[in-house]
Design a protein around this nucleic acid. Sequence first.
RNA 1: GGCGGGGUAGCUCAGUUGGUUAGAGCGCGGGACUCAUAAGCCCGAGGUCAGUGGUUCGAUCCCACUUCCCGCUACCA
Length: 509
Amino acid sequence: MAKNYYITTPIYYPSAKPHMGHAYSSIVADFFARFKSIDGFKVYFLTGTDEHGLKIQRSAEKNNKDPKVFCDEISKTFKDLTKILNLSNTDFIRTTEERHITSVQNLWNILKKNKQIYLSKYSGWYSVSDEAFYNDDEIEEKEGLKVSKSSGSSVEWVEEESFFFKLSKWEKSLLEFYENNKDFIRPKSRRNEVISFVKRGLKDLSVSRKSFSWGIKVPNDDNHVVYVWLDALTNYLSSLNYPDENNKLYKSFWPADLHIIGKDILRFHAVYWPAFLLAANITPPKKVYGHGWILSGDEKMSKSKGNILDPIEIIKVYGLDPLRYYLLKEVSFGNDGSISETKLESCINSDLANNFGNLCQRVISFAEKNCSSLIPDHSFNDDDLKILNSLSNVDKIRTMIDNQDINQYMNFIIDRLFASNKYFNDQEPWKRKNDKLRLSTIVYTALELIRKISILLYPVMPQTILKVFRAFNIDEKQINISSLKNNDFFKEKDKINKLDILFKKIEND
RNA sequence: GGCGGGGUAGCUCAGUUGGUUAGAGCGCGGGACUCAUAAGCCCGAGGUCAGUGGUUCGAUCCCACUUCCCGCUACCA
């Protein structure tokens, strides 16, 4: 059985610099990517930037820049972010790249050939910032300006020739597809929303624009550019060298296993995207997960409220791994979550410094003083085996990951951390100095516990966990989920290196 | 207006296919220990499980209604 796994983030729209929401999507996707890769999967992890559309064209004009130059600059900040977030992505795609343009035009041609696209005339209200068309009844007048009722962004009257995709035709097929692929939309509550949306009926979708030029040209009709969503979504194929469907990447990784997206773009991914693909005879992806927003305290982050927490600034102050840990643990995946410096600090102190960090410290330092920093001898009793085996059920853990139960996964880790600290306490190795084998076994068991928990924490905090493994002379390639089943991984007399403090506590008055 | 989700300890949340004392973390109070980042461990305080009514021997969990919050969506305009 091929163990391949294809996961994506949204491609980000570079009209402004990266914010916490981008960081969150990316960190979540990286978490899954890293878990799968230490679980023996060949992982293809894609992220990138979505660079076409009127909004970009206008931002570029405003800055007196050629749109491509403008995109180069901002796309770079997103590419830099992948490094700052320590993402394990295998590719970074830009929709202005030739490979993507070829891919989109090819998809267009197939849709055209399959008679899924026709030329007609569009008239209606268009919001540049939402990249969406609105009906008369979806707009209202505010302070003399026409704005969208739903987003509040200003709309303009557009009347032009446009190509349409026969979305209306796909209503029934989509509903069947949702029915036959019950996992396609997650979380479940979102699935219900999408289904009820489709059930109300779908209108054909305008998929080209004539009034501006910053986009991918419609084949054989240079006056039109491809609608940004048809353009953007196709990135998931482009990266796999589509349209060459016989190449190794495409054959190994399509259909994608998981698209991680924010709930705001669920409709595009759960309705339009599978419809385009079905219409082009391409298998849709296996799952789309629409996560929630990251709020600042309990409010949406916005410039006017001045409550923006910039991920890059947070990382400068607190470090990357604490942020990754916080977002994965504290945000209930699928729901909105909130972040504040106070909560982040409290999380760092209690979970990372006091619980995990201190566990590593006390055990390794005890081993240094009592076992000469060498892996000691061992002879397990029932207490030892009981706690070690509580970290051996890999199937249970894999199920959590395959169901995207991030919180359950994190809670399991935390629960085992408490149990490990308690184990060390209850066994009181410091009172066993005249029972050398028992003392050694306790230390050995504790080291194994740290090793196992660290494996589970690796997808969450890769940099920190590598430090722990360096103390054990384990390198990144040796980290794997199935070794959780092993209770005596460590070899007697192997050296244990000194471990620096992993997380400093944050002292406030 | 319709559909869906939700209201559980000071805070963030878990849970119960209905069954003696409702759970965790953080925060708070106390205790014993000392390997450790004065960390960890133990004990405790704190909840009419939104409200009302119903089904049941028994409901936080099922049903109805009420109320509040959130999401999707519609209509009026």
